[in-house]
Design a protein around this nucleic acid. Structure first.
Length: 567
DNA sequence: CGCTGTTTAACTGCTC
DNA sequence: GAGCAGTTAAACAGCG
């Protein structure tokens, strides 16, 4: 195959261009995709704010050429800076000090990297998008939109990255396709996460997976019950599975989430389920039965084949769609209550968590799904927090993918909040979450960043990055070349805790209050957003993730500069 | 025709 | 260095 031989196959942030797009983003655009149900709720407000056409003229080369300083400096250690996720995590605590030394060049970096490529892989982006979705599934175009909404970087060169997105969706088993309905025409299918994909991004870190999720391939022998559990089955077997249309196609497509016989399903797509009012009625009338069934499913889920669990997962999705339709006239608290009833099988401590999450979950779907698979056994709970969920096909402690999101949400609440739950706090200081690390680039960190930071080294590194972000710009007039990192930290804390505008209704709760209470998390997010924008109004990106990415880049650059200075 | 989806290939960078 | 994860490009088919 011929390749066009671009200067670099990997488009690092060297290649990112200077902004010029900020003005195109509606100023009111401030979002928390995880807390308010994803960008789908924002599309109406976003459309027209930016267009692909106005940005098509920009390319990587232009971005580099227009900033030769950039290029020259980054070329010293450029390749290590971008992929060096771990380096970014391990930002030196002295970074804030060295950042003062290089403050001038940082301004250049911060200006130029405002829309640098986010440090998330495409798989991460897709996962985030899907997990932020109310129904845990999206169409391709919705995924596109979600990404563009959050990351200005991806508003250019759409053909390039969107091709990669499509490739990722098709290539990776962690993404499964849910067909559309014939009576709900539209291009493309829905995409969802494979339930066995589990926590691909541990600790909520959406940077790089530890291991690629590979679904055990079902053996297509005509026996619908013989779907998998065949470790010797190859991907070729799967790829040659006969599709309903008779063509050879991959079997990632989910056919019948509601049928006990997947290959002889009566439902072929989402609307078949959604439109089946009889099924809906039956489901509503058998909530209690379903609860018991879910419990049974949950216990047997671990023994179920991956594809059966896939179907179970999809069945949950469809069921939630039903349930949401049924509950659509109820306010969210009522929806949450119904969901809680639906999941009556959970014990008290889990219900506490569940209720807590209802406050900020966008729909009962989240809590419902979450609670469906939460095990209450202490040992399982410990494993739930400790063990990677990738290699869990035979692991009885496996959980569907939405649990990673749930865990992120829980982690976002921090260890303090966890201790509010008796069942989770009796581990005391040894509880995994008591010293768990919420990755600075996790979505949960977004929700936590405006509030009380955890005092881990990693969070310190994150703070360094954030300080750099802030002091490279707003505090630029403050000559603190000789200020110690501690002093800088103090300054930053003072800035963060002193909203100076009455326009912002949110304020960081005092430490005496329940800073990590779920209802505060969103406020904290917006507060963080506000602080960042206040610190640097000229480069406000209106997307927290992008800002985090920017902070990360700053950290990389700073570390590089620091290392170069030492050398 | 454009979008969606699949597949292949080449490549970079990281981990072991 | 091998293997793996991820990125990018491209060709192709199907569909609305």
């Amino acid at each position: 195959m011929m390749l066009s031989s671009p200067p670099s196959k990997y488009q690092t942030f060297q290649q990112s261009f200077t902004n010029g797009m900020n003005g195109s983003v509606p100023g009111s655009y401030s979002m928390n995709p995880m807390a308010i149900g994803g960008p789908s709720t924002l599309h109406s407000g976003m459309n027209g704010g930016y267009g692909s056409g106005m940005l098509n003229g920009m390319n990587a080369a232009a971005g580099m050429n227009s900033h030769p300083t950039h290029h020259s400096q980054m070329s010293v250690g450029g390749s290590a800076a971008y992929p060096g996720i771990n380096q970014g995590v391990g930002l030196s605590p002295n970074m804030a000090l060295s950042m003062c030394i290089n403050r001038r060049t940082e301004k250049t970096y911060r200006r130029n990297y405002t829309h640098a490529k986010p440090p998330y892989s495409y798989i991460s982006l897709i996962t985030m998008a899907l997990q932020s979705s109310q129904h845990k599934m999206m169409t391709l175009s919705e995924i596109y939109q979600w990404i563009m909404d959050l990351f200005p970087f991806y508003r250019q060169n759409q053909q390039r990255w969107q091709n990669s997105i499509r490739h990722s969706l098709s290539f990776n088993d962690c993404f499964v396709k849910v067909p559309r309905s014939p009576d709900k025409p539209g291009k493309g299918s829905y995409w969802s996460l494979h339930p066995d994909a589990g926590n691909m991004f541990e600790n909520g870190c959406y940077l790089r997976r530890q291991k690629r999720f590979k679904c055990k391939k079902m053996k297509f022998s005509g026996d619908s019950t013989d779907m998998d559990n065949n470790d010797n089955s190859s991907s070729e077997e799967m790829h040659q599975q006969q599709s309903p249309s008779g063509s050879l196609s991959p079997s990632k497509e989910v056919t019948s989430p509601s049928s006990p016989h997947p290959h002889t399903s009566s439902y072929n797509d989402i609307s078949d389920v959604m439109d089946d009012k009889a099924a809906l009625t039956q489901q509503q009338s058998s909530v209690e039965q379903n609860s018991r069934k879910e419990l049974a499913d949950q216990s047997s889920n671990a023994e179920a084949s991956p594809n059966e669990r896939m179907l179970h997962h999809q069945q949950n999705i469809y069921s939630h769609l039903h349930q949401q339709n049924a509950d659509s006239n109820l306010p969210h608290p009522e929806q949450g209550r119904l969901s809680a009833v639906n999941n009556h099988h959970q014990n008290t401590e889990v219900e506490n968590i569940q209720h807590s999450n209802h406050v900020r979950t966008s729909s009962p779907v989240d809590a419902n799904q979450h609670s469906n698979s939460i095990t209450t056994n202490t040992r399982e709970r410990q494993n739930y927090y400790h063990e990677p969920l990738l290699e869990t096909k035979s692991d009885p402690l496996s959980y569907p993918s939405h649990h990673s999101f749930y865990l992120s949400q829980l982690q976002a609440a921090g260890a303090h909040q966890v201790q509010h739950y008796p069942g989770l706090s009796h581990h005391g200081a040894s509880h995994p979450l008591a010293h768990s690390f919420t990755h600075p680039f996790s979505i949960s960190s977004l929700m936590n960043a405006g509030g009380e930071m955890q005092s881990s080294k990693e969070m310190r590194a994150y703070q360094d990055a954030m300080q750099q972000y802030s002091y490279g710009t707003t505090a630029q007039d403050v000559h603190h070349d000789n200020i110690s990192p501690q002093q800088i930290s103090t300054l930053e804390n003072a800035t963060a805790s002193t909203p100076d505008s009455g326009d912002v209704s949110t304020s960081i709760p005092s430490s005496s209050s329940n800073t990590h209470s779920p209802e505060n998390l969103q406020q904290q997010y917006y507060q963080m957003h506000y602080n960042m924008e206040s610190a640097n109004p000229a480069v406000s990106t209106h997307d927290g993730l992008g800002s985090l990415a920017d902070a990360y880049y700053q950290g990389c650059v700073q570390q590089h500069n620091s290392n170069a200075a030492i050398a």
